[in-house]
Design a protein around this nucleic acid. Sequence first.
DNA 1: CTGAAAGCGCTAACAG
DNA 2: CTGTTAGCGCTTTCAG
Lengths: 343, 343
Amino acid sequence: MTRTKPRPLTLRDVSQACGVSEMTVSRVLRNSGDVSDNTRKRVLEAAKTLGYVPNQIAGSLASQQVNLVAVIIPSLSNMVFPEVLSGINAALEDTPLQPVVGVTDYLPEKEERVLYEMLSWRPSGVIIAGLEHSDTSRAMLRSAGIPVVEIMDVDGTPVDAMVGISHRRAGMDMAKAILKEGYRNIGFMGTKMPLDHRARKRFEGLTEGLAKAGVEIQERAFYSGGSALAKGREMTQAMLERNPDLDFLYYSNDMIGAGGLLWLLEQGIDVPGQIGLAGFNGVELLQGLPKQLATMDACRAEIGAAAARIILERKDNPAGAEKQHITLEPKFSPGETLRRYRR
Amino acid sequence: MTRTKPRPLTLRDVSQACGVSEMTVSRVLRNSGDVSDNTRKRVLEAAKTLGYVPNQIAGSLASQQVNLVAVIIPSLSNMVFPEVLSGINAALEDTPLQPVVGVTDYLPEKEERVLYEMLSWRPSGVIIAGLEHSDTSRAMLRSAGIPVVEIMDVDGTPVDAMVGISHRRAGMDMAKAILKEGYRNIGFMGTKMPLDHRARKRFEGLTEGLAKAGVEIQERAFYSGGSALAKGREMTQAMLERNPDLDFLYYSNDMIGAGGLLWLLEQGIDVPGQIGLAGFNGVELLQGLPKQLATMDACRAEIGAAAARIILERKDNPAGAEKQHITLEPKFSPGETLRRYRR
DNA sequence: CTGAAAGCGCTAACAG
DNA sequence: CTGTTAGCGCTTTCAG
């Protein structure tokens, strides 16, 4: 038995099945223009019984409109970015736009490749994490002629629009909160930072904030890969062995912070009396820890939603709409790991 | 100043810029066919200085080939599915294929919509989570004329190919392990299951495995939404208050298991002496818990990679390649929450 | 309200 | 090795 590759159905097939011109079928399927209820019904029925699925490739080429939004993020294994995605998804839910995700693994060259591939689909907009991009990437973004929203960070100059929080500011605010409670011997733990500009900025903000009060970070340690929770444990133990005088530990993300917290509690160390702790991100996870970790919410879903909205607005009104720069305020939660916190 | 919408560059622009026919430019850009080194160089340079980005929409329409793989998953907020995605991403890394993700929120109607939208891009294949789909969805999958891989589960009949583990079997194996260590009063906690067929199958497997030894689950509780870690705590506490005789708790995922574990340890309850625990999934997170939770690894990345490989193979050899059904073996880790575990 | 013609930007299939 | 000619399946545009 010879099986020919089953050519997918085309408009023409539907057209023939219901005796209506392709053009009219097309109009029905897109709800565009006026069509009599009668023909509409016939077309719809034919399409359904045949199981016709329109060909967006052809449609997009003809209409010069692609209802895709390129979303470019560094990673999927972090929970932070999936949450941003959810925000984007939610905002795009009842619109014709559809997100398409590319992952860069924090590598600028890969970002270039991914961006190039994405742009070759001629999307209606780009949402891309971070403000740091190679010259090539920036050139592509600029000359793409579509709205570009850089997200998650506002410490820098965007190509076009931008939505995020100031990580530098977040670091400084944390410094203030720490100092206010009388902590002075501060240790820092985080990811290897050349990879992660936002973590770096938080660190710089913290350093600067402390410096203003003449305080210096006493210990620091960086990791990459592995289970963040386990790393938090190990690094905390190692750091305290190296320097038992520390009275505060700032973690660049909640996961390692949680690991540290669990270890300290096991050791019977008084948190926040003897040692204070804080993380960053406000991950939902924290709600189940023995003690609520102090943290700062990075507004991930809101950022995604706001970015998506900008793309939508520009689509409706391509000319107007000045470059939008939206700075969100990370919400601080004192939790229970910061000595007698007051607003 | 009047700004005309900057028409993106076309092959023709490059062709004119370097005095070579469009066809040849196209060949250079796709590394297809023979082109003299000389012209190749000229073309490449022109393309680069102009900043030309090919138009895949047009290319795909002309070649009737779309290098996209539709990936349809229920959720992004679970870490399980991002891991599957990573596996797919990795396997597709150095191939022309690119994954495009759609999220269904565990809703069959949304699955239909997402599938329809995906298919309208005429992808080269579909990777879709689960074996349970509406008739409409199944019909679409069958008649799409492209390889379809249903993943994560093998307890059922796939439309085409399938890669996953047997969740029923996983539940039964867990039952065996539990019984072997002498636990008899067993409680179960998990997500509301109409939503999650795989969790349901694990539960059924567990029930069945216990039944064979004349043991019945004594308590069960289901949740939906919220922080899984916090839910694990609350539910564990509530369940033990309801029935203090329980000596084993099986959690349908590691996150709530971790919550339960933390709560039990805080209460000073002897784990696994007084109460044994097990979760499901083998999330990396577990490595940092005070005690390693017994669990079963669901092979998420491997499943993604294997599914992607099936699509790739079919692409090279569309005719041959029988429907592939791959059953992976979930790896059991006894951890430290199951009484004196032996192989 | 409906249809016919032209063409979106690229590539398959031939010819040189 | 390079160029020419026809479309891919749809939508835009313009006529009825």
